[in-house]
Write a protein that binds this DNA or RNA. Sequence first.
DNA 1: ACTTGTCCTGTCATGCCGTCAGCTTACCGA
DNA 2: TCGGTAAGCTGACGGCATGACAGGACAAGT
Lengths: 215, 215
Amino acid sequence: MTGQVRTVDGRVAGRRGQATRQKLLDCLSEMLSSSPYRDVKVIDVARKAGTSPATFYQYFPDVEGAVLEVAEEMAKEGAGLTALVSGRSWVGKAGWQAAEELVEGFLDFWRRNDAILRVVDLGAAEGDKRFYKIRMKILNSVTNSLTDAVKDLQSKGKVDADVSPAAMAGSLVAMLAAVASHQKGFQTWGVKQAELKPNLALLVHLGITGKKPVK
Amino acid sequence: MTGQVRTVDGRVAGRRGQATRQKLLDCLSEMLSSSPYRDVKVIDVARKAGTSPATFYQYFPDVEGAVLEVAEEMAKEGAGLTALVSGRSWVGKAGWQAAEELVEGFLDFWRRNDAILRVVDLGAAEGDKRFYKIRMKILNSVTNSLTDAVKDLQSKGKVDADVSPAAMAGSLVAMLAAVASHQKGFQTWGVKQAELKPNLALLVHLGITGKKPVK
DNA sequence: ACTTGTCCTGTCATGCCGTCAGCTTACCGA
DNA sequence: TCGGTAAGCTGACGGCATGACAGGACAAGT
């Protein structure tokens, strides 16, 4: 482990300090949900947490630094997404169920953490390696499992050899992430959640197995 | 048409004014490519354009306002993406070609405009209707054509009736957009452009027709 | 040269950023 | 109980971006 939590100037944080730090993170998280990333100011976060800007700078170098912490917290939870895919069978009815549950779990996770995920996505797209790494951490858990699934099916001759497992898995996961972060958009556009999910599951199934699902 | 370009305080902009305005937009566009959205400041844009912040505020209410203009410009170009899909046949070899060219054209457009598209995506995800509308304008041209394609195949009984054309088209387009904006990410992850494209085309073809392509 | 309307900038009040010294609080050993 | 020490917090300050204004520079027509 990395050891204790430390302040910017090197002191180790005690009980009270950690509580303050966490409160700042929570408030930052709330702010990200309610206002554009660009407009989130240190002073607002501090005010909301009932403390002063100076205190904020004791624990984080800047807003971005704090955002990275929030993202890291979420990434830990996100690692649990592996459970949605690993050890699943992609054959027959089980395959369709696997696809459905993957979509369900993925969209749900994204909806619960949409604000911070938006920012992580932006950071990653802008080429910031720290954000990119966090995004990987979350997505890899799913992507790797899917990659393995495709490789497995390929080795059994059930999937064409010219499919690149990594590219396919990555594309599918990127799709899920994108649709998840624009869920509201789809609704305004006249597509209901209820019809969105089966279609995503269908695409996932088609992508992994190359075949229509048995329902 | 919207008529003449106007300054914030209501004057109509003349030849020189429009040139300055455009220069500011160009410089803003460059800044978006080279630094994080959050760090783009009016003063930097103005300096880069060889003018003063005050001039910037003559033409735009704030950075966001100017970004919307840049996005609008790009959206006009983006409307041309329709050509990639409309009037295409999705049957047999022509279908595979259609999928390949769609992917190719889409990724290319995204790569050329990645900086501004990132910001539009963020704005849309944050629920800003103005950004959302612009995103629609670009994607609709493709999405609608794809929706029609699916509907057409459905009416001929070539695609299952329980597929929702809009949801399917929307998901595919979202996937293309997502993969496009994380192209660099894929590369770092070990997936090459060359294997990415065919896989995307495969997914598009599978999604639209429900069948493996004839190459 | 003079007028007119467009265009740009110097300047200023305001507010956020990021840092520091210094004060308060909690813990601990004697 | 009593310092001593480290943790925790904040007021205050220089610096910089914001956004508004009035006034000067410039081009075009008379």
